[in-house]
Design a protein around this nucleic acid. Structure first.
Length: 465
RNA sequence: GGUGGGGUGGCGGAGCGGUUGAACGCGCCGGUCUUGAAAACCGGUAUACGCCUCGGCGUAUCAUGGGUUCGAAUCCCAUCCCCACCGCCA
């Protein structure tokens, strides 16, 4: 959520921001509604003030008259009753006017909030303009000595690559058919060493972020209330991407949603709280199952483990003071953690500065990290895929956009309550990450060397096949 | 799933239709006293929004949302949450 007061002062900042992100939102309409809303509120409040004052005068008078009614002979009672009635009628006009104003305010408020929630965070000025991921800008790349993605796979390893699907089939690592039988398209079963690799790499990532980088590990609910989806900024825009559990249809007071990332629960933990400054920064990590409907992605990346409905992800979030410099430092630090992990695994990767159109509604800035996936990209004359970068990580910087929605604040040195800043980044998501693992570490005979960093988590096993 | 009891400020805990944003205690902050500290005493101590002559003023908030009433923390309804017991269960 953006700051309505700031929007009043700088409407163009938000109009430009929405335009840069390609989000259609009627900010002029919001300003109009806001003006109306405030006028009504002012009148309603002053009417209420008069009503309160009047009530305090009348109240005791009615009280005394009622007491009199009990003691006085019946001959006088009708006179007292009419006095009471007279007093009671006094605030009636006010009451009607207030009810009228209440109604008008109640009619405007949801309209106002709908627009307010839809206004995206303006991109930072240093974010390059663009309309889609095609306009993202490569910042830097890294690769191990033994695999340079600027050369072909054959040049790197001396043989033609198999895809992760072929490798998975060879070694019975994934059962796509039965996964689909059970749960439809984009479903899978990790089996045998596939399941072990998955657990091993998640555990490696979880240990790395918690023990080496001091993030507090948490297990969190992956089924949450709608307000948490709204609070973290995934709703309303991402409503179609979330699985919806309609508990209200079964008599419950509210529906639930499956989270598409551990970020939701990690951030929602402190919703509606006022933290003390010395609690900050909060560094949390979780490994959680993520659910994504992939609505609108029909036909895209349908084969293999790339785009699936359910996966597991180690996620990191930071909640820090409302300080841009600190926020930016954390962003760099969180990216550095991922780079260190990928270097441990010896995966070639690159950093991409996402352009304005690719940021999503809540981010001021986003850096994607992509790992080299030999099976992606165009197929050459020999029938070998050229390989391509595939997104494995995404590091977001949100200022107070998310904390404002979550009502997550802290008390600063002056004792004022201030919305925190928040950031999040993938640590590692599997099984997508098994794509580079299997494909990069395959040998000519189809066997797979297990990365050194992973071997301790695989009972010191060195190869598959 | 069933039955019963509850949700009041940072915490504990009163209030159960009329100057109650809320007694009292604890905690916290400031002050007096003290060489210093403690004790004692005095004062202060919520959040949000709106208005504004930047000193304030107003409104809302006693789980949440409705309702009754001239007036609701207090009465009614719905929902959420917590606790206890029973049932079911990894």
């Amino acid at each position: 959520m953006i700051d309505l007061k700031d929007l009043r002062d700088n409407p163009d900042k938000y109009k430009d921001g929405a335009r840069a992100k390609g989000v259609a939102v009627d900010i002029d309409r919001l300003l109009e509604l806001d003006t109306q809303h405030r006028a009504l509120l002012a009148e309603q409040e002053s009417q209420r003030a008069t009503q309160k004052k009047l009530s305090k005068e009348i109240g005791p008078q009615i009280g005394t008259l009622r007491k009199q009614l009990k003691t006085v002979p019946e001959t006088h009672s009708s006179e007292i009753e009419s006095q009471i009635r007279e007093l009671e009628e006094k605030p009636l006009q006010l009451k009607n006017r207030i009810a009228e104003l209440d109604e008008q305010i109640a009619a405007i408020k949801p309209k106002l909030e709908t627009i307010l929630l839809a206004i995206p965070q303006p991109p930072d000025p240093d974010v390059p303009p663009g309309t889609s991921e095609a306009d993202n800008v490569q910042l830097r790349t890294w690769h191990p000595n033994w695999f340079n993605p600027s050369k072909s796979f054959v040049d790197n390893k001396g043989f033609a690559p198999r895809t992760h699907m072929q490798l998975a089939e060879m070694h019975n690592l994934v059962d796509f058919e039965r996964g689909v039988k059970m749960s439809g398209s984009r479903s899978y079963i990790l089996t045998g060493d596939g399941a072990r690799l998955h657990q091993a790499i998640l555990r490696l990532a979880f240990d790395f972020i918690t023990t080496e980088h001091g993030f507090v590990g948490c297990t969190v609910p992956v089924i949450v209330r709608e307000e948490m989806m709204v609070g973290t900024g995934f709703f309303p825009a991402g409503h179609d991407q979330a699985y919806h559990i309609e508990e209200s249809k079964r008599g419950s007071g509210h529906d639930l949603f499956l989270t598409g990332t551990g970020e939701v629960s990690l951030m929602a933990m402190h919703a509606d709280e006022i933290l003390s400054a010395d609690q900050l920064p909060l560094q949390y990590a979780t490994v959680s199952t993520c659910f994504r409907r992939e609505a609108g992605a029909a036909g895209k990346d349908t084969a293999g483990l790339y785009r699936i409905h359910q996966f597991d992800k180690v996620e990191q979030v930071v909640i820090c003071k409302a300080d841009e410099t600190e926020s930016r430092q954390w962003h760099q630090k969180m990216i550095g953690i991922v780079e260190a992990l990928l270097q441990k695994l010896e995966f070639p990767y690159r950093l991409l500065q996402c352009c304005t159109g690719d940021l999503g509604p809540k981010n001021a800035d986003m850096i994607d990290i992509e790992s080299w996936m030999p099976s992606r990209g165009d197929v050459d004359a020999d029938g070998n895929p050229a390989g391509a970068w595939g997104e494995t990580h995404s590091a977001s910087r949100l200022y107070d956009y998310q904390c404002r929605r979550l009502n997550l604040r802290y008390r600063n040195d002056q004792g004022k309550t201030v919305f925190c800043h928040s950031l999040n980044n993938t640590v590692l998501a599997s099984p997508r990450v098994l794509i580079p693992l299997l494909e990069l570490y395959q040998n000519e005979d189809g066997s797979i060397t297990i990365p050194k960093a992973l071997q301790p988590y695989m009972n010191n096993q060195q190869r598959i096949g």
